[in-house]
Each structure stands twice: as C-alpha cells, then as structure tokens.
C-alpha cells in the first residue's frame, strides 16, 4: 500500500540506507494482515503469554495488564491465538472490519 503521507524520492536517504537506529516502529505493517486477532476481555486472564510470543511486539501491556493490540504493526500471524491457554484470542477475517476505522483512522 502507498499513501500520500509517505515521502517522495527527493526526501528519503539515498541507496535505501537507514540512517536512524531503531526506526522500524515507524514502518506500519498492519496492512499486511488478512486475519485480525480479537481478544475477549472476559476470558483473558492477563497471563501475558501472548505478549511473550508476539514476534512484532504488538501486545501492548500497561501495569501488568494487556491494554490493547497494536493493529498498526500486527501482521496477523496468529501465534497469540494459538498460544493463548484460555482461547481468549480469535482470528477474525479482516473483511469483517472493512467498514470500520482503525485507531489512527482511514487505513482499512
């Protein structure tokens, strides 16, 4: 996906170089996802096993509890749903959310 907020060829470092360390957070990979992990807060025990396993650091935890899933970076791999010991996470087809806006809005 390309969007208007992405930079033009005159504005980016040459040669594809990344001149700033640790900037991958700025690269949003959420649009790669075809299945979305949806957490059932009633079932979730906040054991944080999903937080341990998530390869994209997309389980956002605050004060020892899951605050949210970062859909701007979650690629929908489903590891969280597979590892959850109480089946609190369901993978839902993204088409179900087609008319819904993400937190930052407008991407879906």
């Amino acid at each position: 996906m390309t969007t208007n907020k992405q930079k033009g060829w005159k504005e980016i470092p040459k040669g594809g170089l990344i001149l700033e360390a640790g900037n991958s957070e700025k690269y949003e990979t959420g649009s790669w996802r075809s299945l979305r992990p949806v957490r059932d807060e009633n079932k979730c025990t906040n054991c944080l096993i999903c937080w341990v396993y998530c390869p994209d650091s997309s389980i956002i935890v605050k004060d020892g509890k899951i605050k949210k899933i970062d859909y701007d970076h979650c690629k929908g791999c489903g590891i969280c749903a597979a590892e959850c010991p109480v089946n609190a996470i369901t993978m839902v087809d993204e088409s179900e959310f087609r008319n819904e806006k993400t937190e930052k809005g407008g991407k879906k």
Binding site: K7, W9, I12, G15, G16, L17, I18, E20, A21
Partner: peptide
C-alpha cells in the same frame, strides 16, 4: 549506526530507483 541493504518494498523501492 546505520543500515545498508534493508528490505525495500513496493512503497519505497520505486523512489530509490528514481534517485
């Protein structure tokens, strides 16, 4: 610290070719 040769997909590869 910097990175040479990162993955560069449909969203930026074209801009690098234009450069």
């Amino acid at each position: 610290p910097l990175t040479y040769g990162p993955l560069d997909l449909y969203d930026y590869y074209f801009e690098h070719k234009r450069q």
